[in-house]
Design a protein around this nucleic acid. Sequence first.
DNA 1: AGTTTAATTAAACATTTGTTTAGTTTTAAA
DNA 2: TTTAAAACTAAACAAATGTTTAATTAAACT
Lengths: 206, 206
Amino acid sequence: MTTKETILESALKLFSSKGFEGTSVREIAADAGVNVAMINYYFGSKEKLFESVVEYRALVLKGLFSDLVNNPSLSYIEKIDIIIDKTIERKLSNSKFHHIMHRELSLEHRPQLRDAISDILLKNMDPVKQIIKNGIKDGEFREVDIELTISTILGTIHYLLTSDIMCRKILGKKEGFNPFNNKPFIKRLSEHTKQLMRSHLLKNKK
Amino acid sequence: MTTKETILESALKLFSSKGFEGTSVREIAADAGVNVAMINYYFGSKEKLFESVVEYRALVLKGLFSDLVNNPSLSYIEKIDIIIDKTIERKLSNSKFHHIMHRELSLEHRPQLRDAISDILLKNMDPVKQIIKNGIKDGEFREVDIELTISTILGTIHYLLTSDIMCRKILGKKEGFNPFNNKPFIKRLSEHTKQLMRSHLLKNKK
DNA sequence: AGTTTAATTAAACATTTGTTTAGTTTTAAA
DNA sequence: TTTAAAACTAAACAAATGTTTAATTAAACT
């Protein structure tokens, strides 16, 4: 790993757990095992380092669902199932990055960064919207509020996978329980969300 | 308003918009129009000021739903409707405080504060749980995943009411749109969530 | 080889940080 | 009115902050 990448990884970790202002460049340098000056040498400033972390990680959140829209071999509800699983999966494997982005969203300084971040987070919005819209048009889905239905999917997953301590308390679990690598819980979350969407979306339910 | 309260109000405002580390005591003092030393005089330290803000505002988030559990004149789904509306209402009238609490939850330092905050946020968890449980027992509700159903309600509302910019983009609204004081949108959110819960919870739907 | 460019270092820089001090004004009680 | 406590102020404090400098080492090129 190059020096630049080492710094990016340490910055990702520390920004995620302590926030931007809560993390000093010296901490990042120490964690990465490099000289403090290297941060400004490679990135120019702490703020630009932060933006680089966002860019660096935004790449892995590329559009996932665009090819799903025109896939004729799946029913609409099956597409929703896939969207749910992929969303959970993606959030789990990028939990630190999601932490950073959602925290930044709730802060009011650095408005241009907020804008960039919301774009990244909603990169998959349009294909999902299209799938639900088509599902309604073809009579498989009820005439639901499309945007808010997507918010429910994202909100349910986000709410539980953002704060381990919150998740633990909601579920009534003990200290040792870690939602992020607990397979039964992930399965449970997936099943609940899918079932929820079946009841909500499908017209002819039995 | 006393000096102490003025400081608390300014701290609430600034912590909410810029975060704990992102806000300096001098900014707070300036905003409150008092001398910097007053903060340490009244609160001891910046950290204790933060805890005081949490205490100060936690009072207004008292248990809302405990009397709802044993109310016999309402059906279970009507109780859920009330819970949804009260949750939205409470979040709107304390949006700054919710900002602070959810941000703090996602940070990993100050663990004892995280614990206190999650307790505050979940103060109403038990009565809601009880209502759904009774609804299932009495045959009005299906056998849903109770904890995750609550997470869906909270998650949907939280996801949309946390970041104005995100909300705007999800809904495809212009710059000027502010979800926090847009009545039609609040109504829309309320209706969606209620409808969602009807489909999800009710056994004999038509 | 020598030379230029890049990478890295330790130290210093100027600000800003939270906090404290010592003194002053205001308030309230005796 | 005198006295004591509370409220408030301006200044100073030490520590930490992001950033830059100047010097040194390593790499790459001619």
